[in-house]
Design a protein around this nucleic acid. Sequence first.
DNA 1: CATCGGTGAATGAATCGCCATTCAGCGGAG
DNA 2: CTCCGCTGAATGGCGATTCATTCACCGATG
Lengths: 244, 244
Amino acid sequence: MNRHSAEPRRRGKPLKERDQPAVAAENGVSRRGGDKRERILDAAVHVFAHKGFWSSKISEIAREAGVADGTIYLYFKSKDDLLISLFEDRMERVNDTLAAAMASSDNAADKLRRFVQTHLQLVAANRDQAEVLTVELRQSSKFIKEYANPRFAQFLKLLATVIEEGQAKGELSTRVRPVLAARALFGAVDELALWWVLRGDPRENLERAAGELCEMFLGGLAPAASAGASQATELPANVKRRVP
Amino acid sequence: MNRHSAEPRRRGKPLKERDQPAVAAENGVSRRGGDKRERILDAAVHVFAHKGFWSSKISEIAREAGVADGTIYLYFKSKDDLLISLFEDRMERVNDTLAAAMASSDNAADKLRRFVQTHLQLVAANRDQAEVLTVELRQSSKFIKEYANPRFAQFLKLLATVIEEGQAKGELSTRVRPVLAARALFGAVDELALWWVLRGDPRENLERAAGELCEMFLGGLAPAASAGASQATELPANVKRRVP
DNA sequence: CATCGGTGAATGAATCGCCATTCAGCGGAG
DNA sequence: CTCCGCTGAATGGCGATTCATTCACCGATG
């Protein structure tokens, strides 16, 4: 997007902080131009999402962030570290958002609905980020194996805890162990996210998908409840028959 | 130019190799040795699974396959092509196995159970392969975007078709669209597979997990009618009887 | 049966381009 | 002047791919 490409052989960049107002560095990260770290992370999200980690070049991230190649190494130890940091940073936000969304509800089923809804909303609102988080980091053995990934563990625990509490209160079936149910639910949601992110028919409504997914998880695929349950939730009877 | 001039005749390899027994080349693939392609694919599965595609070196695959680096290029156009070929080859077997497993059943719920069971059995029986198929290919932007991945589409269609037919016959709820349900189910199963493959507590019983997963998908997480019980211990090994 | 090219599969060292990382400055701020 | 954040060209290593060369095997020939 913003290419400050062929600037004359000048040393620095003319670009005199004309961008961001001199925001106070909340993190004490650096003294001047304090948002470089954030700019680099943003650029990394974008580039990683489009090229994939291994095909992304540091120089491209630098260009997109409007900094010099070397500057990246002032903020991150290595390319690997950049990816890990990115993950830590963004995952923390995601977890906070999800936790907050679930907190405002008091029964398990509803918490799960909110979890799914919110997760997919986040995906829809941050395509690139979602792609990096779901695809890139989980992609390579290298990272999965060498990096403990605490944020992801936290993410899953959030889900497992809700299920566990729901079971304890009798709001959820105890037929499935919480960790397993959490894994499965996460897997399903994640797959939908991946689908949307990659081939994403923008017309496919993630909101609607979220609803259906919740139905399925809570109510099951078996035909609507047994004994004289109303067919209210069933779709209209004209099931379209298609020959495979 | 003088590539070899300095080294008169030391082409050597100790060459005491205990080649394959001169098995009749069923495939007419090559005159000698005959199964090199397969050996290379096997080695690639192993190396890719352990190092990840991008960290794997051709020379390592060659070493493990017991061939020279250059030999790999007699059978595959490039490293990328090796991965794609690997995927095509192995996925085809997986699809066949799954299709066969489901064919021997006549109702949708049972087909789904078989799908899940068989899939996880395959994973358990072929750890490395499962890792490559689920992690390396499915999750790398580069390949997801540049490679249409017909086998995976076929895989999903298999599942969606079963669900669709089940709905048409009234065996499954129509509350969820087949494609979506298929995606979700796949995502869940795949996530369990990934979990087992990567951190895999070998003690975790995939068979059992498969059973619980099916329960959850077919019956839902909502409490089963009444019978609020204690913990997950209420679960008998295979509760096939769902649908009251 | 022994010899003799011919053939092409297999080899693996050398090539060559790429890219993460470094570091010798630069210029502005204090 | 000194300090410091930043710069971006240069470096160094790595690893996919190539290709000159070898040699196992085949059918033909005498």
